[in-house]
Design a binder for these strands. Structure first.
Lengths: 189, 189
DNA sequence: ATATTTAACTAACACTTGTTAGTTTGCTTG
DNA sequence: CAAGCAAACTAACAAGTGTTAGTTAAATAT
């Protein structure tokens, strides 16, 4: 029961193609061909193209929600919490770079699940924002524009899916330390 | 001759739709309907859907190339050059957020123009990288991993198109200062 | 006034899309 | 061996795709 099901194979194959061309440009025939079968055969395992997208995106969004929940309820310092967020993004992204591309680029093609996804996303951003504000109040974080700091960090973390696959010899911990350092201390001497 | 031509109207309307749903999900009928005409009428002004995408992306990519060329050949300090790059991104993006969405998300659907676009992009990244390396050599910039710094800054700058439209009362200069400060000094106290 | 241009229209095309129905194949289990 | 099942297949569909051809109406230039 723990081995990868045929459905999972379809989802992973699709995610790979979605990353290259986007959800709308990938046809069911593309997915089927990549698996060496015919398009109609896909429907023995999944109910629609939509379902594939939903499975890719929602499971990832829930992983992030869970990770943030854990960090929130910890008693790390604000800076330590931010470092944990960096680790969270690197960990999830390096395990599923294809899916992360869909999460970032194809979320608007969710249909019934779109409101749920948007709720998870704005909750996540709100928790992130709270950590920054708390850090400023506690004098751990510079009193710069919170929205600018949030935007800058989140943009970088959300783009990891583009960048991680280019680094063949990825050491997650080292990357996490380097990236945390740059995000927290900037590039200044 | 300086007023917006019908072709430009089509390109701008298309860019807006491309931002919302992506190039592949937008049909010629969608573009036409948004302009209050029929799809076939578009072809009095443009030769293909492809051409619309090309016009949007290539002109923006060339603007960036030109801006970088200017910064490169200036004799600002490395940090000042980076601040100019931040300004460049904010300026181009706030003038054309729709187009910037296509540049970021739909470039892979360029066909004949794809190699040219990729060349411009990698040249741009190389010049950016050179500025960082020069800054490290001159002891203006911290000796952190150059690729991590480059990735972090570029990710943030490339995501501006998502964020700028949310700020209704945009003061470009103030944003430029705030963002430069965060990118250069980080968020640390 | 006539000729020309601009920019819209209708109608249609060949092809591609997601999906369904019904069937066949080959493995697993009693 | 027979039955059941998982997972492939072929064939077809209705709707939607980008695009072309030919036409028409209004604005502009001669």
């Amino acid at each position: 029961m723990k081995e990868e099901s045929r459905k999972d194979e379809i989802i992973n194959t699709a995610a790979k193609l979605f990353k290259e061309k986007g959800y709308s440009a990938v046809t069911m025939r593309d997915i089927a061909t990549a698996m060496g079968i015919k398009a109609a055969s896909l429907y023995n395992h999944i109910s629609s193209k939509q379902e594939i997208l939903k499975e890719i995106i929602i499971s990832l969004a829930e992983e992030f929600t869970q990770g943030m929940e854990f960090i929130k309820s910890s008693n790390f310092s604000s800076i330590e919490k931010l470092k944990k967020i960096v680790s969270l993004h690197i960990s999830i992204t390096s395990q599923n770079t294809y899916g992360m591309a869909s999460l970032n680029n194809d979320w608007m093609h969710l249909e019934e699940q779109l409101p749920y996804y948007l709720k998870l996303r704005s909750n996540y951003e709100n928790e992130f924002r709270k950590i920054l504000k708390e850090g400023i109040k506690k004098n751990e974080i510079a009193n710069s524009d919170v929205e600018v700091m949030l935007f800058s960090m989140l943009s970088t973390l959300r783009s990891l899916y583009i960048w991680i696959p280019k680094k063949e010899d990825l050491n997650s911990e080292e990357l996490s330390n380097n990236l945390s350092h740059v995000l927290i201390n900037g590039i200044n001497k």
